[in-house]
Structures are given as C-alpha cells and as structure tokens.
Design a protein around this nucleic acid. Sequence first.
DNA 1: CGTGCTCCATACGGTATCGTATGGAAAGGA
DNA 2: TCCTTTCCATACGATACCGTATGGAGCACG
Lengths: 212, 212
Amino acid sequence: MATVNDPNRPPSERTPLDRSAWIEAAIELIATEGIAGLRIETLARRLRVTKGSFYWHFRDRRSLQQALLEHWREGRIRDIHKQTRALPGREAEQLRHVIDVYSASRNRKGILIELAIREWAQRDPEVAEVVAEVDAIRLACARDLFLALGLTEEEATARATLLYAYVFGFSLMHVERMPQEIERLKTRIAGWITGPVAESGQENGSKQGFFG
Amino acid sequence: MATVNDPNRPPSERTPLDRSAWIEAAIELIATEGIAGLRIETLARRLRVTKGSFYWHFRDRRSLQQALLEHWREGRIRDIHKQTRALPGREAEQLRHVIDVYSASRNRKGILIELAIREWAQRDPEVAEVVAEVDAIRLACARDLFLALGLTEEEATARATLLYAYVFGFSLMHVERMPQEIERLKTRIAGWITGPVAESGQENGSKQGFFG
DNA sequence: CGTGCTCCATACGGTATCGTATGGAAAGGA
DNA sequence: TCCTTTCCATACGATACCGTATGGAGCACG
C-alpha cells in the first residue's frame, strides 16, 4: 500500500512519478471500478497530480491500457510458473496449492483484476489475444503437473481445463453459505479435480491410484 | 430481432414504446457494451426516440437498472427450472443437457449478459444479492438431479457446485484450439462431472455406477 | 369542439472526461 | 549565470451524458 505520493507530504518533496506508478494505480482502479472506471483524471486525483503529468508519461488513454495489459500479462506468466514449480513427487500437492492460491477467498483482489480484464477482453480483440495467451500458458503449466502424475496427454489436458475453469467459475459465483461449509466443499471438489477419476466407459482400477 | 421501431418506418406509424421495450433494448446493450455502456441516450438512439420517452417510462437510470435486474432474475429462474425438469431415469442425460445449453458455444449472448451482470455485482451489493439468489436456485436444481441419481446430499452439493463453476469458468476462458478438439475436451469433462467419481480416501465401487 | 391523457421532442443547465496548448518550477550541466 | 531537460499545473475547446422543464401531436371521450 505504499503510494508514491503521500497526501500529507508537502508538494515540495514529492517523488516524481514514472510510467510504472501510473500503471500500478491503474491496476488498483480497475480492481474496484472495472475497465470502464479507468479514467485519467480519476487516476491523477489518486496520485495527487493533474492530467498534465499523465500526458507527459503516456500518449493517451489507449497507451496506458496497453501498458497495463502488458504489465498484467508478464506478471501472470511469471506467477503461474512460480506457483506450478513442483518438487518431483509432490505434484498433486502442488495442484491443490494452485487451486488454493487462485481461489477468490485467498486472492480477492487478484480475482477482481482477472474479471475486469476478461470482461474487457469480451469487446476488445487485442485484449482477448493476451488473455488467450495467458490462459494457454496456465493450462500448459497445470497440464504438466498432471502429466508428471502419469496421466496421458489427453487426460492431462482435460483435467487441467477442468481445474482452471472451475477456479475462475467459482470466483464468479456468489455463494450464500457458512465460510467453514464452503471450505469443506472446496476441499472436496479440489480432491476430485486433482485426484482419481473413473473413466465413464471403462473399468475402474487401471487409471486410478496414479497420484499416490 | 424484432425491433419495435423500424428505422425505415415513417415516424407517423411508430408503435408506442413501453417499459419492456426499453428493458429488452437494455439487455441487448449490456451484452455488447457491459453495464457501463448502458446509457440512456444510447438506448434512445437505438430505439429511434429521444430521452423524453425514457423519462416518461422510467424515473431515472437506476430505475431502468433495477427493472433490468428483475427481468433477468425472473428469466433465469424460469429457465433453470425448465432446463432441469428431467424425466425419472434420465437425470444424467439432463445434466449433460444443462452443461450444453449453458456453455458459451451454444449460448454466446446469454453468457455475455451473465458476465456483464456478474461484473456489475462485484461493485453493487443489491445486484450481488440477486446474483446470489439465482446462483442458489441453479445450484439447488442441479443438486436435485444428482440427488435423484442416488448421491448423498453432501456429494450432490459438491457435484453441482463443480458443474456450475466449471460452466461459467469455461465461458471466461479464451481457448485457442480447433472447435472439434474443444468439443471432445468438453464432452470428456462433462462425463467426469456428471459421471462416476472415485472418492480419494475410499474404496472404489460402492458409489460408482449410480448413473447408468 | 373541448378536454384530458399518453407518449415523445426539444431545449437547458450541470458534470465528467478527453486531449491539447502552454507556462512554470526544480535541478543539473556548460 | 544561463540554458536545457524533466515533470507537472493550468486553461481551453469539445464531447457525451444526466436529469428537468416544457411544449406538442395524436387519440379517446363527453
């Protein structure tokens, strides 16, 4: 929460802003207000400067959006690689960890940013491309963990897709239950997604205990 | 696609608008532009009238939003009951049907409206309440189908949650694959969600063949 | 014909925002 | 000291929107 310019600090000793300060503030803003709420003058008020500063660092609004998107893209790619780097033999554990850190209850702000950007992607093809790239990388990372558990390529792909879709879908839901009850529910579902699944047209057993 | 006022029709023989015409147009608009794009004068242009008409039918912008939300709520509740009314013995089939009709590939516009409203719910508690109600009803409907298949209450709840979260999560994703490949993937996942799942800490068999 | 009701057009004041133009303060080098 | 560069403030025109005020066309009805 270290804002670059403290309101209590006299203007004489303000830190000069740079592009990244604007981008950080923009990320904060879309988390609460959505992409439509990303206004230059609103941002400027938050940073305790005027538009003049913005138009020195950026060409226009679109330019900030592009920088914001690129910043998000890089951060997400770095993060998913970090979160899925598993020690050999602990892949199942790592999968459950991924579900946990990406779930809304532990990462509310991150989810809000995700939702804002994905809503943005619904009506901007350039954004949709970036989102598609991030999705592909995340899916590949999750898939690799399932592959390490001994699943076939097709199974691993499907399992990773289910995991990924579930996590985001759950964050979209507005559940009315006791927090404790929700946690039990989520633990159970996470067990299904990461654990053994019986093929529907097939004998049980062969593909079962692959994860321990 | 039956717009109330055809642009080619002379103004002398226009059909008078009513609230529902405005609400329908509003739904169309948020599907493409999001909640932030729901502007009175934009709507008026689409309906070939001016603001004067709007403010005769509605008190203000908020009033339209509330009517819109109520319209969405009623429609969704009616629809989920319709989609989950299964003949005895065909519950599993009905569950796969539900996944199909709510998936983005067959219901693009509906998904866009859902996303727009859920994004809206992130920053409006009244909207969040309505969304929570719709979610609860949909979950209950899906849960009932699982219960009819012989699952325990807790299992049915978890399975319904997984189904529901998956469907919406998948609609948020931007997948870069061949359509045919995606369909195979989705069929496989739908089979897992609606079909047998092995409990991770339990013998296989007892809860297995419940659906066929 | 006159009256009232329904539905919409027009005009207005007010706010928020975009992007531009331009001036100015601070700091560092020549 | 003077000049340049960096960073920001201020002022401006233009647009889009909100909500209100008010007039007016058309139709029903006595």
